[in-house]
Simulated assay, not measured.
Amino acid sequence: MNTPIGYEPLTPHASPLTATAKIFVAGHRGLVGSAVERRLRAEGYTNLVLRTRKELDLLDYAAVAAFFERERPEVVIDAAARVGGIHANNTYPADFIRDNLFVQNNLIDNAWRFGARKLVFLGSSCIYPKHAPQPMKEEHLLTGPLEPTNEWYAIAKIAGIKMCQAYRKQHGFDAISLMPTNLYGPGDNFNLESSHVLPALIRKFHEAKLAGASAVTVWGTGTPRREFLHVDDMAAATVFLAANYSDSEIVNVGVGEDVSIRELAELVRDAVGFTGELEFDTTKPDGTPRKLLDVTRLHGLGWKASIPLAEGIRSTYDWFLQHQADFRT
């Protein structure tokens, strides 16, 4: 098929994100997808198409094609992905590369084929080389080896970026790619086996506080530096860029500031109210030494993050307390 059904190329100044546009948020029950849904509704977008995993298996090309043929969404926001921390990436590398490739391929191809006017692909800062210059600029992509502990996920996301660029180049499809830094907030994964560092620390400090423990053990040396963006800020940036950005170049989405893992642990300890000590297990991997995004392009487009890290951690802990019955495992 050379021409997608119902596709009309955008004029340079036309945004498909209108008040009545039919918007499909893939992965709307996840950390990012749920925040995007909240943001869209808050901004008055009500014509949303949402499907749970049981209702639509994004790994199934035929099912995804049938869905797009039936619903014909005008805007697609791809917030669906298999995600996890160092342990999960190291343990299930085949699952991470396979599932993410299948999901993004199915969404991008069928969004184009069935006339979507915009697709927003959400990648990750882990696409950049392990020893990329800091802060990492968009042009640092594919300039060096990846971090081995998450290369499977990173390669899948790089493939998604290139697929968006290829469909734009060959078909004129308005697909944009956003690269968020480390995200956290309401709806996060607090399972200690598969979570990222910030929610894992929240749960560990909370359980240590309840147990009256004298110390909490943190993986690694505590020296690596990480940047953290509240998921509600990420959602705001996603909606803003969906409406205002159309180009093949990727856009970093972050705050432009980072903290050490030790500093992060201290912030979480304060938010939780744990009074014990920190201990660092140096036999565990640190991962990439530093991951800080250059957000010059994002700021130049007119958007900046607004939620300070300490405030975001406190509100995330409050959310955790309200939902902790869901985190028994």
Rank of each mutant, 00 (worst) to 15 (best):
A80F: 06
N191P: 00
D232N: 09
A35R: 09
G276M: 05
R29S: 14
V231E: 11
R70F: 04
I158P: 00
G27W: 02
A19R: 14
R328Q: 15
V216K: 11
I155W: 01
W152N: 01
K162I: 03
N182Y: 02
E37P: 03
D233E: 13
T329Y: 00
K130M: 03
V32K: 06
V49Q: 11
T223E: 15
V197R: 02
I77R: 07
A305P: 11
Q170T: 10
V64Q: 05
S246L: 13
Y92P: 00
Y153N: 09
Q134S: 14
H140L: 03
D247W: 12
L17S: 05
F121C: 08
F24Y: 15
A243L: 04
D281P: 05
A236C: 04
G85P: 03
E74L: 07
Y245Q: 00
S34H: 08
R72N: 07
E263H: 01
L107E: 07
S246Y: 13
N90V: 11
M136I: 05
V83Q: 04
M1T: 06
G220I: 04
N90H: 10
V75W: 06
F274I: 07
H13A: 05
H196F: 11
N105V: 00
S306V: 14
I155G: 04
A79L: 02
M179E: 14
G187H: 12
F121N: 12
P16Q: 13
T223D: 14
A265G: 05
S177F: 00
G287T: 04
V25L: 08
N182V: 03
Q324E: 15
A14R: 12
K54C: 01
F114Y: 15
R226I: 01
A265Y: 10
S248H: 07
V272Y: 01
Y153P: 09
P129N: 08
R53M: 08
S194D: 14
L142Y: 05
R328T: 15
A213L: 12
V32D: 06
H140C: 12
R82W: 02
L122W: 09
L101D: 05
E74D: 03
W152I: 00
G33P: 04
A62S: 15
T316V: 09
Y153R: 10
A62K: 14
P145E: 12
G222A: 12
V272G: 01
S315Q: 15
L292W: 09
D232K: 06
L301T: 02
G144V: 00
P4K: 13
T296C: 10
E43Y: 10
T283E: 15
L50D: 12
F67D: 01
